Measured scan of single mutants.
Amino acid sequence: MISLIAALAVDRVIGMENAMPWNLPADLAWFKRNTLNKPVIMGRHTWESIGRPLPGRKNIILSSQPGTDDRVTWVKSVDEAIAACGDVPEIMVIGGGRVYEQFLPKAQKLYLTHIDAEVEGDTHFPDYEPDDWESVFSEFHDADAQNSHSYCFEILERR
């Protein structure tokens, strides 16, 4: 099963200049909980913004210009990325925008964090048809001392 995991502000903004323009430790914990011990696929820009392999996960970098870091697996196509994951129950696609666009048609599940923030962004989550998805989990949280904005975790499964 292919799943996408993303944090989205208003207007589906997911990033600005290779960074997330908010401070939500709870979302980072949600991300870790849902990706640990699963292969993660990301684009080169996302890889560069993280700066290191995510521990406890097979890191697969999709790029037309593969790098030389041998701590991760470099691939040039969506099919190659899927094959590099091996026989696993769930593959997690973690961004960025172009990689989400490439995998959305193949995805069966979306793990979304909806952030109540209007922020400037240069990267967006692809538009998706809500009628194609069923919400199977939703959990709202107010902003607090650690988390700069209110947010809602949601899991959607393709109908």
Rank of each mutant, 00 (worst) to 15 (best):
residue 16 M to T: 10
residue 53 P to K: 07
residue 126 P to N: 13
residue 72 V to S: 11
residue 23 N to V: 08
residue 60 I to V: 10
residue 109 K to A: 12
residue 77 S to C: 06
residue 8 L to S: 02
residue 6 A to G: 06
residue 123 T to F: 00
residue 10 V to R: 00
residue 49 S to R: 00
residue 117 A to L: 02
residue 129 E to T: 10
residue 37 N to L: 08
residue 86 G to M: 10
residue 92 M to I: 15
residue 24 L to V: 15
residue 150 S to H: 05
residue 151 Y to I: 10
residue 157 E to T: 06
residue 69 D to C: 13
residue 130 P to Y: 07
residue 34 N to M: 03
residue 133 W to N: 06
residue 152 C to R: 13
residue 60 I to N: 02
residue 38 K to Y: 12
residue 21 P to L: 02
residue 141 H to T: 09
residue 156 L to P: 01
residue 25 P to D: 05
residue 101 E to H: 10
residue 85 C to H: 15
residue 40 V to E: 02
residue 143 A to W: 06
residue 90 E to T: 03
residue 143 A to N: 06
residue 140 F to V: 14
residue 3 S to F: 01
residue 105 P to F: 10
residue 93 V to G: 05
residue 72 V to K: 04
residue 106 K to H: 14
residue 157 E to K: 10
residue 122 D to R: 00
residue 69 D to K: 06
residue 90 E to A: 06
residue 12 R to M: 14
residue 137 F to H: 09
residue 117 A to E: 08
residue 91 I to P: 11
residue 98 R to E: 01
residue 76 K to H: 03
residue 24 L to I: 13
residue 80 E to I: 07
residue 132 D to P: 12
residue 55 P to I: 07
residue 77 S to P: 01
residue 21 P to F: 00
residue 58 K to W: 05
residue 154 E to P: 01
residue 128 Y to F: 03
residue 29 A to G: 03
residue 7 A to V: 01
residue 122 D to Q: 01
residue 11 D to M: 04
residue 139 E to F: 08
residue 131 D to S: 03
residue 123 T to M: 02
residue 29 A to Q: 10
residue 130 P to D: 12
residue 90 E to G: 04
residue 128 Y to Q: 03
residue 80 E to G: 08
residue 128 Y to W: 14
residue 122 D to C: 00
residue 67 G to S: 11
residue 134 E to L: 11
residue 99 V to I: 14
residue 118 E to Q: 14
residue 52 R to G: 12
residue 44 R to L: 02
residue 56 G to I: 03
residue 90 E to R: 04
residue 69 D to M: 05
residue 125 F to T: 01
residue 24 L to T: 13
residue 5 I to E: 02
residue 115 I to V: 06
residue 54 L to R: 00
residue 100 Y to W: 12
residue 91 I to R: 06
residue 26 A to S: 02
residue 70 D to N: 05
residue 158 R to D: 04
residue 77 S to H: 10
residue 109 K to F: 11
residue 107 A to S: 08
residue 71 R to S: 11
residue 30 W to M: 15
residue 45 H to S: 15
residue 131 D to A: 03
residue 145 A to Q: 06
